[in-house]
Design a protein around this nucleic acid. Structure first.
Lengths: 149, 149
DNA sequence: TATTGTTATACTCTATAACTATA
DNA sequence: TATAGTTATAGAGTATAACAATA
């Protein structure tokens, strides 16, 4: 592999991500949100009301897929759809209180699974993870394409 | 939140994982494996031939779902099915050379995406990530339920 | 004309229930 | 009886193509 001093072993990191994510799926209860639905809800909670096309772009799914997913989320009472007063074509999607609660509950459930696993890690590993939390957030933010409102 | 000195902020870490995984989906090409298919292939590569039920358990999907997924992987030439000489009911699944290659290529594609993102991180973040790779692998290994052969 | 969103259609993937075959 | 696996069926989720309405 021949990694330099400050070079990241992306292959190992990527594989580790895959495996951790597989673990986190354990926290997914029956009737829970799909990955993309959860991610969309998270986006709406943190970026506020957004256009349907902007959401589709941000989540990397097609416009028809987003139309249908928003339809399901709306039927479940997790989001609401409104018109854009400035553009008659546009649909503005907003998270409801129920959507906000579900999103928070999902996040908490994943945290519990993660915390249980982390308890069994040796102290140096725990410390390394703790020190990497901010870096991971920065990494995630690098790829963020916030849904332009 | 009130975190102690050596306590992990699992909620933040879990959310960061979610977001990074969403980024990695960009490396998924059309015609690529599903998440579970890729994970199953990975399991077969690293744990060797396994029973269908063991795979279903390890991947947290139902037995019928695994039956069908193995059927698709077999049709694609990525795995092969054999009989267990000791148990006439059992099916033993094994990864083929083509399956091994595809699994490696997928891992490489994700690594490229990750490396491109990491290049844009400041040095301290990069270092923190680098130092956390082993810890993440240990974390993933904690939850491993190897498919008892 | 270009953009926003929907409808139509088809395919993948999953789960539950009912079944067959072996232990 | 219990276990390993399959088949049947229904539903979620996705994509491409064709469409309607607004800019």
């Amino acid at each position: 592999m021949d990694l330099g001093e400050n070079e990241l072993d992306a292959a190992r990191l990527g594989a580790a991500f895959d495996r951790v994510v597989r673990l986190l799926r354990r926290s997914d209860l029956p009737g829970d949100l799909s990955q993309v639905a959860a991610s969309t809800l998270y986006t709406l909670v943190h970026h506020g009301p957004s256009r349907l096309t902007a959401l589709a772009t941000a989540e990397h799914v097609t416009q028809p897929a987003m139309t249908q997913m928003i339809g399901r989320l709306e039927a479940a009472g997790l989001v609401s759809r409104g018109a854009d007063p400035d553009d008659g074509r546009a649909v503005v999607v907003e998270v409801t209180d129920a959507g906000r609660e579900l999103s928070a509950r999902r996040r908490a459930a994943r945290a519990v699974v993660l915390a249980e696993l982390a308890e069994r890690l040796p102290a140096p590993d725990l410390e390394a993870l703790q020190n990497a939390v901010a870096a991971l957030e920065h990494l995630a933010a690098l790829g963020d394409q916030p849904p332009a409102p």
